[in-house]
């Protein structure tokens, strides 16, 4: 037995021995105990009830994957589409306003139109070009000729 006085200072001076031991017959019995442990483990695996969560786990994983793809792909696309829809809506509102205005003008008879037209505070005299365009669009040369003969 080494004492404090003659304690080795280098590893090479130490007696290299295993200071540990095992209980008697430990290794002789280990194989049998190991076999028993494996059998118990197999029985536990067999008896182990399949939990609901284990059954639905694959479905949940799949759903999670779809949700992830949805978040990554669909939402950005949708936000881009929404922007486009907003732009189109603004454009279509303008178009709708124009269409409504045209519809009102078309459904109005000439008297009402002129009444409204001349109802302003200042009397606006239409330009010659406007009158010419209006007549060209709404009356044939024959109509104009017949009107001037009256």
């Amino acid at each position: 037995m080494h004492t404090q006085e003659n304690s080795p200072r280098k590893l090479s001076e130490l007696r290299k021995e295993n200071p540990f031991r095992v209980p008697g017959n430990y290794f002789e019995d280990f194989q049998a105990r190991m076999q028993l442990r494996i059998e118990q483990d197999i029985q536990q695996e067999v008896r182990k009830p399949v939990r609901v969560i284990e059954l639905i786990k694959p479905a949940l994983s799949l759903a999670a994957s779809f949700a992830a793809v949805f978040m990554i792909v669909y939402l950005p696309i949708r936000s881009i589409q929404n922007r486009q829809v907003a732009i189109e809506a603004t454009a279509s509102e303008v178009i709708a306003d124009t269409e409504d205005y045209t519809f009102l003008l078309e459904s109005m008879d000439e008297n009402t139109f002129f009444a409204l037209y001349s109802n302003g505070d200042t009397e606006v005299i239409p330009a010659d070009e406007s009158i010419t365009e209006y007549l060209a669009a709404n009356y044939s040369d024959y109509d104009i000729f017949m009107e001037t003969q009256k």
Partner: peptide, 15 residues
């Protein structure tokens, strides 16, 4: 605490 440690003082120090 291990009752299956048989080493002497030096072995304990080494461990």
């Amino acid at each position: 605490a291990d009752e299956y440690f048989d080493g002497d003082d030096i072995q304990m120090k080494l461990q």
